[in-house]
């Protein structure tokens, strides 16, 4: 059994004390109740305050539990909320890029498509909301695996099927590819899942910098790529959209 960390135990005791009654407590009350030196108690409270777990009443200087604690227990972002917030931005991305836009989240061992905007031409297209895409080969999946540890372990433990000649299936190569995604902030899929199709995707973060989803465009490889490279303007447009949605998620409370 590993040794426990004393300061964490003490911080937990402070939180329990503040949760115990309805009264707000002053520094000396907390220190004496827990039998701590005032300086020690102050250090603990200041750290908890920085993390948002404790708040100080500006008028009386007394302490109470912070709003962040409530959010911890209720942090799950509803995917339909995500879609509602992303709607305007993804419409704009489809118009400016001329390609289909997809919004995906991690679901079980894959990417669940929660929003889909048609390519703005007059062709017949089918709404793909509710469809699943693979984690290891699509741009959306690679973004999720690169930023969300749960998605990463699903991708590493799951079977990485070769859909085309270009699908990366080996563990080391896959992890190296994710390292590239993390370093440049976006992922690509050039005919790794579907012959003739290429995609670019970027991560969406909530206000606590948690990766909650990925947004990307998919289109014919001839349009999405220039030679062997992805069109830089398209990459920039996808990243702008991801940032705009993230900003919208962070700007408001849930």
């Amino acid at each position: 059994m590993a040794r426990t960390i004393q300061s964490l135990e003490r911080a937990a005791a402070v939180l329990r004390l503040l949760a115990g009654g309805e009264r707000r407590l002053g520094l000396s009350e907390i220190a004496s109740a827990l039998d701590l030196a005032k300086g020690t108690a102050h250090g603990l409270i200041r750290t908890l305050q920085q993390e948002g777990f404790v708040e100080q009443d500006p008028a009386t200087g007394r302490y109470q539990l912070g709003a962040e604690l409530l959010r911890l227990g209720n942090s799950y972002l509803d995917v339909h909320e995500l879609r509602a917030r992303a709607l305007v931005w993804t419409d704009d991305l489809a118009r400016s890029s001329g390609e289909s836009v997809y919004l995906g989240v991690l679901h079980q061992q894959g990417v669940l498509i929660v929003h889909h905007v048609f390519r703005p031409d007059d062709s017949r297209q089918v709404l793909e909301v509710g469809a699943m895409q693979p984690l290891h080969s699509t741009a959306l999946g690679k973004v999720l695996a690169a930023y969300d540890p749960v998605a990463l372990s699903e991708a590493l433990e799951g079977e990485r099927q070769a859909f085309t000649e270009r699908t990366v299936t080996g563990e080391a190569e896959f992890e190296a590819a994710l390292e590239v995604v993390r370093s440049r902030g976006w992922a690509a899929d050039v005919e790794e899942t579907w012959d003739g199709l290429a995609s670019v995707a970027a991560p969406i973060f909530d206000r606590r910098r948690m990766p909650v989803g990925a947004v990307g465009v998919t289109g014919a490889v001839e349009r999405v790529c220039e030679g062997d490279e992805l069109r830089p303007l398209l990459v920039a447009a996808v990243r702008d959209t991801a940032r705009a949605v993230s900003r919208d998620l962070g700007a408001r409370r849930f």
């Binding site: 419409d91 489809a94 905007v117 048609f118 703005p120 007059d122 297209q125 709404l127």
Partner: peptide, 12 residues
């Protein structure tokens, strides 16, 4: 000309 501006984003 306005009709040509109308783009379908989704269809159910």
């Amino acid at each position: 000309e306005l009709r040509a501006n109308w783009k379908r984003a989704a269809e159910w």
